Computed example of a mutant assay.
Amino acid sequence: MILASSSPRRRELLQQIGVRFEVDAADIDETPLAGEAAVAYVERMALEKARTVAARHPDEVVLGSDTSVIFQNAILGKPENDADAVSTLKKLSGATHQVLSAVALVSGKQSRVLSVATQVRFRELSDDEIRRYVATGEPADKAGSYGIQGMGAILVAAIEGSYSSVVGLPLTETAALLNEFEVPVWQAGC
């Protein structure tokens, strides 16, 4: 199997469930289309990533994935800079947002895509906490400007849904898709 992502988090999650894979990251335009709903966006991104890499590996099963943070119907991508990260975290402070993760598998002419929504509630954050967290550098490459699997875990008061989806890959749903495509999970030595 080929993982169409350079995300270290997705690599770790696949290894966690014993999937053997190689990495060949897709380089695509990730700009949302005008008026595109968040679910349609993450599913389109996951499928485009998988199809782009599948064109280079026509005999392999290719997994593409995308994760977005949604707040007040707006997609919050990766921050452009520290000031953008601070602004995003101030919006999320004390509020609930949604994390959408899509996973797509492509093999030959066969493809499947699905998405998982998880509700995440942040505790109230002080301006000083936000500044100190941004100064760690962790928010720089994370949708929504935080990483629940890292130091950002202390920002989160509660989640309703899939923890692994918030990290970047919904494992239960991914394993089910892999089984459909006859890609083994739970392999030793991964």
Rank of each mutant, 00 (worst) to 15 (best):
S5W: 09
T96L: 13
G152D: 09
G64C: 12
A83K: 09
A143M: 08
A95L: 13
Q149H: 03
T172N: 06
E30H: 02
A40V: 11
K90M: 06
G64D: 10
M151Q: 15
F71W: 04
E48W: 11
P184I: 00
T88K: 12
A188W: 10
E160D: 14
D141P: 10
D128I: 13
K49Y: 11
H57I: 07
S7L: 04
S101I: 05
S87C: 12
A55L: 08
G94S: 13
L13C: 08
E180V: 09
K91W: 09
A4W: 05
I75L: 03
I70R: 00
E173W: 02
N73V: 02
E30G: 00
L171T: 01
Y133W: 03
C190F: 11
A140L: 13
A157P: 05
V53D: 00
A83R: 15
A34K: 05
E138M: 02
E160S: 10
K78V: 07
V113N: 01
A117C: 13
I75T: 13
L33R: 10
V42D: 12
R131G: 14
A157Y: 10
L76Y: 12
S111R: 07
A143V: 10
G147E: 09
S111C: 10
V167A: 09
V134C: 03
I17N: 14
I154P: 09
D128V: 14
F71D: 00
T88M: 15
R121M: 13
T136R: 01
A153M: 14
L89P: 07
V116L: 08
I75E: 00
W186D: 10
S126K: 01
T67Q: 07
R51V: 06
V185E: 00
A74T: 12
A95G: 05
F122T: 04
A25I: 05
P8T: 12
A95T: 09
N179K: 14
E12L: 15
E129T: 13
D127G: 04
I2S: 08
E22A: 15
P8D: 07
E43L: 09
A50D: 09
S68Y: 03
V23A: 05
A38G: 03
S165M: 06
D128K: 08
L114G: 07
A102I: 00
S5M: 06
A74R: 14
V166L: 02
L13E: 01
E80S: 13
G168W: 09
P32E: 00
L178A: 11
Q15E: 15
A117L: 08
R44G: 12
G168A: 02
V106Y: 00
N81C: 02
E160W: 08
L114V: 13
H97E: 12
I70M: 01
R11A: 15
P139Q: 08
L92P: 13
P58M: 06
G144I: 11
L114Q: 12
H57W: 10
E173T: 06
V156L: 05
R56D: 07
G94M: 07
Q72R: 05
I2T: 06
T52A: 14
D82P: 11
V134L: 08
A102W: 04
V113P: 10
V99D: 01
V116D: 07
L14F: 08
S107Q: 11
S107D: 04
R20P: 04
R131V: 12
A34R: 07
F181Y: 02
Q16W: 14
T31S: 03
